[in-house]
Design a protein around this nucleic acid. Structure first.
Lengths: 242, 242
DNA sequence: CTCGGTAATTGGGTCGTACCAATTTTCTAA
DNA sequence: TTAGAAAATTGGTACGACCCAATTACCGAG
């Protein structure tokens, strides 16, 4: 699969962790791993660093490297590791069938805010795409996206009725790998209540933010209003990164 | 401050970015930086990698390294970089005065769920700490925390009325650097409405999760119910990390 | 048997080299 | 003039050496 040395080490270690091959939760030291995998210690360190960043292992200088007990006990919670930025993908994990209903699709001039977020000029235009996402017939999310037409001049209602990210990867061979998102809670408004079958006392979770292409080009500004029972945003934070 | 080579490079580059010393958004190539800073290219790469992970710069092989335009335009959004896991600290940034009111403080047997999350035995006990946090007299958060007594046998009402994380760092020289959090939205219940002055239609944001010590020991299980107007959870994600 | 110093273990940081891969620039030939 | 090949530029991966720092293990003196 992966032809990179450190990724191979990573994958094998993850496999061994999942197979519970380290019953005392302790991994071999870096020098031994370097020897047994027949790779440099640098590559071992790199593999371990990534696993540590993902919260799967903990490293303690002078002491050793250990598996996060929570990773073993509650892998479901850590499922964000098969992670993705696209919404279509994240929903499939539940085992339910996702579907998309196109509510609105038009081209509008970029507002000042959009100009700033998408790095556009005053005379640029954007697609405005409103979609309703469901899981097994149950509407769960109202999504409003804005994409500069100059990035995707060929966007059609057909494409927009499916996964835009998948289309990008399959047809244009670029992928969206970065995002900056804000998560908030809000009371549901009339539209939310109608489309998501919510009572007035039931809220929506709001995820909004910007998706970037590999090269840093801001690609889409998105706003998602989510049925509160279906929003669960998981995040592992490790401050040691700097 | 920092006596590490790559951190020094990082800080200086960040300073130069903030000073807008790269008007074309392009940084010098790695080899030049290595020469001008008189450090190895490895250290330059490490510094750049961290900045990239934080979303401050983008790297493109064959092309160069560029400042994220959004970082310049909207630094407020990226303020998570002066980041922290503690709640006391995060609130101070608003310029408002945080305060804590202790609602409840007792020792209880660890529930099965707590045993799992905190890696405890059936006969272990935990502190249960309920606190109400305010900003400038405005109540914004109901916080319920559980801490194993065997980790902090000396916990007192005095300590618990302030920042526990600060106490830990100042007095025991350990710091909390990792967390696994889940963010959700929920309708407010009677208690929420009373303590946070919410109407029945107004929701709370719920942040719950586990804090870890440096060595991976689960330290605290926390549940925070936050006035929806005061919850704003920012997160930059970069899938290139693996 | 216990305490305390010393050695061994283990992860962390830095340097420098070598080569690879994607992109951009330059040059050459039609 | 221009299209395509070649070279230069620029970041990516890998290796291995060297030393440091935190922790643990060990061993001897008392």
């Amino acid at each position: 699969m992966a032809d990179l040395v450190y990724k191979n080490v990573m994958q094998d270690l993850k496999r061994r962790i999942n197979d519970n091959q380290f019953p005392d939760k302790r991994l071999p030291d870096e020098r031994s791993l370097s020897e047994s995998y027949e790779v440099s210690r640098s590559s071992v360190k790199r593999a371990l660093n990534v696993l540590a960043q993902q919260g799967i292992i903990f490293k303690k200088r002078g002491s050793g490297t250990f598996v996060n007990p929570l990773y073993i006990k509650n892998q479901a919670v850590f499922s964000y590791e098969g992670r993705n930025l696209g919404v279509t993908d994240s929903m499939r994990v539940d085992g339910k069938k996702p579907s998309i209903k196109l509510l609105d699709f038009q081209v509008i001039p970029a507002t000042p805010e959009l100009q700033q977020d998408l790095f556009l000029n005053a005379d640029d235009f954007v697609y405005q795409i409103k979609r309703l996402r469901s899981l097994d017939q149950q509407p769960v999310m109202i999504e409003t996206g804005f994409i500069p037409i100059k990035i995707m001049p060929e966007l059609s209602t057909t494409v927009v009725s499916g996964s835009i990210f998948n289309y990008l990867e399959d047809n244009k061979h670029v992928s969206v790998t970065k995002s900056f998102m804000t998560v908030e809670a809000e009371p549901s408004d009339d539209k939310d209540q109608e489309l998501l079958s919510l009572k007035p006392t039931e809220p929506v979770g709001v995820m909004s933010g910007i998706f970037f292409l590999d090269d840093g080009t801001p690609f889409e500004v998105s706003n998602m209003r989510i049925h509160y029972k279906y929003m669960k945003y998981n995040n592992f934070v490790d401050l040691d990164a700097d």
